[in-house]
Amino acid sequence: MAKKGVEKNTRNKAKHTKLLKKKKEKLRLEKEVHKAKIKAIQDRAKEQKEENPLTKEDL
């Protein structure tokens, strides 16, 4: 027997899709920013290491 009334899943489907898309975009951007920060830290550490290489006598 078919259901009567308004279909359950279609009422807020567009709104839900929009919110999920926004959430995924936010997570993607956060991930990119995090990656960029880590890369900058690694680059700075590499530069410092190249400028002042440690030798066994320094330790």
Rank of each mutant, 00 (worst) to 15 (best):
H34G: 04
I41G: 03
N12D: 09
N9S: 09
V6P: 00
K8N: 12
K4V: 01
K22F: 08
H16L: 07
L19M: 11
N12F: 01
N9Q: 10
T55G: 05
E50F: 06
K22T: 11
K26E: 11
R11D: 00
K46H: 15
Q48P: 08
T55Y: 14
K26L: 12
R28Y: 13
L19W: 11
K4Y: 12
E32G: 01
L54S: 03
E57T: 14
K31H: 10
R44D: 11
K37V: 13
Q42M: 07
N52Q: 06
L54H: 04
E47Q: 13
E32W: 08
D58H: 08
G5H: 00
K24M: 08
G5K: 03
E47F: 01
K4N: 06
T17H: 05
L27R: 06
E57A: 15
R11L: 03
P53V: 02
H16V: 09
Q42R: 14
P53A: 06
K56C: 07
L29A: 10
P53K: 10
K22P: 00
R11C: 00
L29N: 13
K31A: 08
E57F: 12
K39W: 14
K4A: 01
K13G: 01
E57I: 15
N52A: 03
A2D: 03
K31L: 11
E7K: 05
L59K: 00
K26P: 04
E32Q: 10
E25G: 00
V6H: 01
P53M: 01
K26I: 06
K56M: 12
K39I: 14
K13E: 06
K39Y: 12
T17R: 09
D58W: 02
A14K: 02
N12H: 08
